[in-house]
Design a protein around this nucleic acid. Structure first.
Lengths: 342, 342
DNA sequence: CTGAAAGCGCTAACAC
DNA sequence: GTGTTAGCGCTTTCAG
């Protein structure tokens, strides 16, 4: 298997290697005729530019990094798959790195990764995407990045990123519970380092307010996005003088934990307790009863993030940098954990 | 942020760049004194070799690929984390690629990945690790690879790889059920493209045989490693003249599906039906009751695979290539799905 | 045991 | 519009 280099292409097309380079990189100022000759040669030889050489020489590289600190395997896999599919299509490499967002030297770690691997851009998911130190640093060094996070406040501003409108989605779920007649609704939230946590909580509070129901702080628990915290949170609720009739969980894992614990205490779901999750992860379909939740298309979200980041890295496309942002709104999915027979 | 290159290290240590290169690559024939001087400089400057440059110049690269085709997010994440932690420690890159093992051109895909990304080695998980076409191809081109798969037959032979002794583990679980008095035990297996499926089935059959119980083919179902197939499989069992009193599932996801379906039909677990899974994934702790299963340390397995692969790529370590293989034996974990109160 | 020189495949800067 | 030259950071080859 002979290695095809830029020289082979140049020779076959009868041009210089620089011209081949120009065509491959879609630079302007190559005559249409030359361009098609080169493209034909590229195709005939099945030429792919050597990534290492480009990265070594070029000011710009073709490597993105995906940084995550998330215990939710489903979420991470969806992100990864979406990013990979887009990156590979566009001849970008994707470096995937787990990290600990609470490490004191997290900014340095990010910096090391960027410089050592010469990243062209970075994709951040929560809670990293919500860490101002990291964002400030990226802005400071001028590295293109895409945040995948929660919020609609940013929409309309000049802030780039992919945003999920958890606020509205959470309000929809809350309304759903209110419509079913619940008035005492607890909220078992995840990690407040995630912007989503605040926004989901806001949606819940707004929903209650609109219905004229006072928010009871004793019914709001904050912890982390895990099954175990769902269990733990429910135990706390059990200590209250009386149980709420419904619980909104920060995500499906928490909801599954609550459901598990409710079962241990012989509490019927949804009759004695309605439970709703968030994210529509496989979790929500693998409990009994299945979980009411809010669906968000994570793979699609990731793919969109990669698209926007690639666009940011290619200023070729005429003119200045326009805002690269997009907002997804999760959809309510009603199932048996809140409504019998749904 | 100044970029630290091999020249900076050489200058600080007062040696030539070649010597630094030797130390970094663990080549023989560097005096202990020089080596420690260089290592000190490396540490002080926080030097990391530029991967692109090494890959470009060297005959050998420092990029491994991890290829997977697995819908089990927990498994993939564990593998990924284990491989990454070892690779990063040893200054290897890890390229992660999902793929479709049933694509007709899968060998060409593998070949393209290897050549285009100039991989130094490949780590394969099931079912790719069990595909003879791929293995033959890798052997043919002489690329170092590590299979992470099931089996103990290979142990003692000259075959490299990480093996999980599912056969024995499955027999242990079967014995556990037999000890509890079950005699009519069904087996709801996963995808037979996975070697683990065959081996787990073998263990089950051996267990029954030893107890003098005839194997009933009607009680053996083959499908895929998913929650949904658990549901589907259980529905099939319901069509039998009488239900088995115990079910062994191909993995925890299948077991969770069976459990889910059993609940829908008001069948008590473990009283009316004992259910056991495999893998000790988070699934097994998030059902009610929790699942009896077999525990296997996936992250550790992955780390070991990377270690062995790295060793294979560094023949420096005196002498010829000795066998690189390791065997893990999953451990029985008894929980409430088979034994009340466990 | 150690160093000097060449060059991997490509792009940036400057010619023409 | 296109070609020439230099060199990214490293390993390889060959001298010492």
């Amino acid at each position: 298997m002979k290695k095809i280099t830029i020289h082979d292409v140049a020779e076959l097309a009868g041009v210089s290697i620089k011209t081949v380079s120009r065509v491959v990189n879609n630079e302007a100022s190559v005559s249409t005729n030359t361009k098609s000759k080169v493209n034909a040669a590229v195709k005939e030889l099945n030429y792919k530019p050597n990534v290492s050489a480009r990265n070594l020489r070029g000011s710009q590289t073709f490597i993105f990094g995906m940084l995550y600190d998330n215990t939710n395997a489903y979420f991470v896999m969806d992100m990864q798959n979406g990013l990979l599919s887009e990156c590979l299509d566009q001849n970008y490499e994707l470096l995937i790195r787990p990290c600990n967002s609470r490490a004191p030297d997290i900014v340095k770690q990010v910096s090391d990764l960027i410089h050592h691997s010469r990243l062209a851009g970075l994709i951040l998911t929560s809670p990293l995407a919500d860490n101002p130190d990291i964002i400030d640093y990226l802005r400071e060094i001028g590295l293109p990045y895409m945040r995948i996070t929660s919020g609609k406040a940013a929409i309309g501003t000049c802030e780039d990123g992919i945003f999920v409108d958890d606020d509205s989605a959470s309000m929809h779920i809350t309304n759903h519970l209110l419509t079913l007649g619940h008035t005492k609704i607890a909220y078992v939230a995840g990690d407040i380092a995630h912007q989503a946590t605040t926004n989901r909580l806001d949606g819940y509070i707004k929903g209650l307010n609109k219905a004229g129901i006072a928010v009871d702080e004793a019914l709001i628990l904050k912890g982390e996005y895990s099954f175990d915290f769902g269990v733990e949170g429910f135990k706390q609720l059990l200590k209250l003088p009386s149980l709420p009739t419904a619980v909104l969980a920060g995500n499906d894992e928490i909801a599954a934990g609550i459901l598990y614990c409710a079962r241990l205490h012989n509490i019927s779901v949804p009759e004695d307790l309605a439970i709703a999750g968030f994210e529509n992860s496989p979790f929500s379909r693998q409990t009994w009863p299945k979980l009411t939740t809010a669906s968000q298309p994570n793979t699609e979200i990731a793919r969109r993030a990669a698209q926007l980041l690639i666009k940011m890295c290619r200023p070729d496309t005429t003119g200045e940098h326009d805002i690269s942002q997009h907002c997804f709104i999760p959809e309510l999915v009603v199932r048996g954990s809140t409504q019998k027979g749904a």
